[in-house]
Simulated scan of single mutants.
Amino acid sequence: MTALSTPRLAALASTRSPLAPPEPAAERCELCAEPLHDAHRHLLDLEKGDLLCACGACAVLFNDLSAGGRHYRLVPDDRRELTGFHLDGPLWAGLGIPVDLAFFSVAAEGPVTARYPSPAGALHAAVHADSWRRLADANPVLAGLRPDVEALVVHRARGASEHWILPIDDCYRLTALLREHWTGFAGGDAVWDRIGTFFEQLRGAR
Results as ranks from 00 to 15, higher is better:
residue 133 R to K: 12
residue 113 T to F: 10
residue 101 L to Y: 02
residue 102 A to V: 09
residue 139 N to M: 00
residue 82 L to A: 05
residue 107 A to V: 10
residue 127 V to A: 08
residue 93 A to T: 12
residue 129 A to K: 14
residue 101 L to G: 04
residue 75 V to E: 00
residue 63 N to D: 08
residue 88 D to V: 07
residue 80 R to Y: 11
residue 83 T to I: 13
residue 134 R to A: 02
residue 62 F to S: 03
residue 80 R to I: 09
residue 78 D to L: 05
residue 127 V to T: 08
residue 160 A to K: 09
residue 82 L to I: 05
residue 122 A to Y: 10
residue 70 R to L: 06
residue 79 R to E: 11
residue 124 H to A: 15
residue 105 S to C: 11
residue 112 V to S: 13
residue 116 Y to W: 09
residue 162 E to Y: 06
residue 101 L to D: 01
residue 148 D to A: 08
residue 103 F to A: 03
residue 93 A to Q: 15
residue 94 G to C: 02
residue 129 A to L: 12
residue 77 D to T: 08
residue 141 V to D: 01
residue 74 L to N: 01
residue 72 Y to P: 05
residue 84 G to P: 02
residue 124 H to Q: 15
residue 151 A to P: 04
residue 132 W to G: 02
residue 137 D to P: 04
residue 118 S to A: 13
residue 156 R to L: 13
residue 134 R to H: 03
residue 145 L to K: 02
residue 84 G to H: 10
residue 77 D to R: 04
residue 97 I to G: 06
residue 108 A to H: 15
residue 91 L to W: 01
residue 155 H to Q: 04
residue 109 E to K: 12
residue 99 V to N: 06
residue 159 G to S: 04
residue 136 A to Y: 06
residue 90 P to A: 09
residue 101 L to W: 03
residue 110 G to E: 14
residue 120 A to G: 10
residue 62 F to T: 03
residue 127 V to N: 10
residue 87 L to D: 00
residue 113 T to C: 13
residue 95 L to F: 01
residue 117 P to T: 04
residue 143 A to M: 08
residue 97 I to Y: 08
residue 142 L to C: 02
residue 145 L to F: 07
residue 126 A to V: 14
residue 154 V to F: 09
residue 136 A to E: 12
residue 145 L to V: 04
residue 124 H to W: 14
residue 112 V to Q: 13
residue 120 A to N: 09
